[in-house]
Design a protein around this nucleic acid. Structure first.
Length: 562
RNA sequence: GCGCUCGUAGCUCAAUGGAUAGAGCAUCUGACUACGGAUCAGAAGGUUGUGGGUUCGACUCCCGCCGAGCGCACCA
């Protein structure tokens, strides 16, 4: 609200002063330091050199126009440093933030800038040859949060899981399963994990001993997919589509895409294989799409797959991959370009740095192929799904993450998620107390918010005002950690307010105003937690205290939900 | 060797090219007989790996070097 007004006024002032608008639009920021005002703009710095004026001279001209226009709530416009325009507002502007949040309710922070976009977001896509490993939980949490963020900007988002069920990995897996069922060691380069032994036992119980490579493979495939679904359900993620690679081969899509590429003149034959001339579109080397034995490569199927996504009517594709696959980015994108998609590149590929699992001070290698793995389900056995999600959403995906199993389990009660949830529970608690005290909350438009004068209230609302921007930035940059960062900061402001300002007091007017203030906080907290896929509980389970020796019974601290 | 990514407080990490680089943990000092102390107030902690460059302004962009991870298949 206030931001829109300031931006608008700035634009008018530029026009009135005969200055152009910068190509990137009119900048308006929240300065880091309180003394630098409530809002600031570096527009004069961006326009430096315009008709030879210095940034400070330009800033002065803009300020003169703004002063003439008399912008609401603005008490002083200061020109600082090399030419910043710092807006000092009267504290009452934050009262508009309460009204805005309450008026928008669950829609607060959301927008429609991506309305009309149909986005296909593919993530996880772990091979159906065993359970999800713990590190894969990062892509579960991140993918789901990014999907939420894009949806919050008005896009129609489709969550998709690609099942690599046509390659030789599945054959190897089937052979490993069959060997275990027969009490033998898996073949060389097979799946060594102990989970294969357990699966083989179940398979024998269901199918008996009359097993072939094919029945073992198919049973294992279906069982693995079921387990993937179950694990994902435990953490609350549901995919709209599980896409089978086999479908592409059955429909002859792979050959069709190869023919299309050949007819367009993008392929050539060499050494008995068929190559795709991806260098034509900027790849570092050309790629084989059909091997000399006549079978298509992974890339050929992947091109057919992504073409299928485009044909299903999506306006944009996003894939989330582990950074270990970065070598394939160029080949897929340039291949898609050969098919006529992009630029800009389709799919957009988000590379996430890998998770390093640590237990007992040692790095745990995560590979389904080479032995024991720690699964996402193992972690969910020990800690709350909310803790798991938040742990994976604290970091930028550009940062490699060290996931210390001992720390996460032993200190799960100290996880930042509880700090934020506690703020939400406090809000709910206040509402309960107010109701118990027989306080009737009057309609907001009959309440005088002008009594909200405390510096903690002001800081709290300044923070809340930043939420819509945080959502927009997080969505644009595909960076859910911006939401975790915002909500932790906001929760801190709330706790600080809570300690210093009582909501329910003998002052009826102040109580009314603060109840609405707290309601606006609830809206922000709840919305942010929802974007992260984390629950917003109204009560926190009682935490065990160890300062008394009579706390013998083990309290269940996991039973929080919204 | 080539390529991609990453080096920020003791530790784990934030920071659309903006002003004085911020949190949490750990350490230290404190807090209401009141809405839930899973809380709050404060202290201390930095040559943003390193050397150049671009810019009014660089953790951020460019180049070199050092270090780490990951890729360089007619595997998936």
């Amino acid at each position: 609200m206030i931001r829109d007004r300031l931006t608008h006024s700035l634009r008018d002032a530029l026009t009135a002063a005969g200055l152009p608008e910068p190509p990137a639009g009119v900048p308006l920021d929240v300065p880091k330091h309180r003394e630098q005002g409530d809002f600031s703009s570096n527009v004069a710095l961006q326009l430096k050199g315009h008709d030879g004026a210095s940034p400070r001279e330009i800033a002065t001209r803009i300020r003169d126009e703004l002063v003439k226009a008399k912008v609401a709530h603005v008490v002083e416009i200061e020109i600082a440093g090399p030419g910043f325009l710092n807006f000092h507002l009267d504290p009452a502007w934050t009262h508009d933030v309460v009204r805005e949040a309450v008026a928008e309710g669950e829609r607060y922070g959301r927008s429609e800038v991506l309305a009309g976009q149909r986005i296909n977001l593919e993530f996880v896509s772990s091979n159906p040859t065993g359970p999800l490993h713990a590190g894969g939980g990062r892509w579960v949490a991140v993918g789901d949060a990014i999907a939420n963020l894009l949806a919050a900007q008005g896009a129609e988002v489709h969550r998709e899981y690609y099942l690599n069920d046509a390659g030789n990995q599945l054959d190897t897996f089937g052979a490993s399963l069959l060997a275990r069922a027969r009490g033998e060691q898996p073949p060389e380069l097979g799946y060594m994990g102990n989970y294969v032994i357990e699966m083989a036992e179940r398979m024998k119980a269901e199918l008996g001993d009359d097993l072939t490579l094919e029945t073992a493979r198919e049973w294992g495939y279906l069982d693995a997919v079921r387990e993937l679904r179950d694990d994902l359900a435990r953490i609350g993620v549901v995919f709209d589509t599980w896409f089978s690679e086999r479908l592409l081969h059955e429909r002859d899509d792979v050959n069709d895409v190869l023919n299309t590429l050949s007819e367009a003149g993008h392929t050539f034959d060499q050494d008995g294989a068929k190559w795709l001339r991806t260098t034509e579109f900027g790849d570092s080397r050309d790629r084989v799409v059909v091997r000399s034995d006549g079978t298509p490569t992974y890339l050929a199927a992947d091109l057919a797959y992504h073409r299928d996504k485009m044909r299903r009517g999506f306006t944009h594709l996003i894939d989330i991959w582990g950074a270990d696959h970065h070598g394939q980015v160029k080949s897929l994108q340039t291949g898609m370009q050969a098919l006529g998609y992009g630029p800009p590149a389709e799919p957009e590929i988000l590379l996430g740095q890998l998770v390093k699992l640590v237990r007992a001070g040692e790095v745990v290698r995560i590979s389904k192929r080479t032995g024991n793995i720690i699964t996402l389900a193992d972690i969910l056995d020990d800690v709350d799904p909310d803790v798991v999600r938040m742990t994976f959403l604290l970091l930028s995906i550009d940062s490699p993450q060290t996931f210390d199993l001992d720390v996460v389990t032993a200190q799960s009660m100290e996880n930042p998620v509880y700090y934020v949830q506690y703020a939400h529970a406090r809000v709910a608690s206040i509402a309960r107390r107010a109701a118990e005290a027989g306080i009737v909350v009057r309609p907001l438009d009959t309440v005088d918010l002008g009594v909200l004068q405390h510096v903690r209230e002001h800081e709290l609302l300044r923070s809340l005002d930043g939420y819509p921007d945080a959502v927009r930035d997080a969505a644009e940059m595909r960076a859910p950690q911006k939401i975790s960062t915002w909500v932790r900061e906001f929760a801190a402001r709330f706790h600080s307010f809570y300690r210093e300002c009582r909501v329910i007091t003998d002052d009826a007017e102040l109580t009314q105003a603060r109840l609405w203030l707290v309601e606006s906080c609830r809206i922000g907290l709840r919305s942010a937690l929802e974007l992260l896929g984390v629950s917003a509980p109204d009560v926190m389970a009682q935490l065990e205290t160890d300062d008394t020796d009579d706390a013998g019974e083990a309290n269940d601290t996991d039973g929080v939900d919204g």
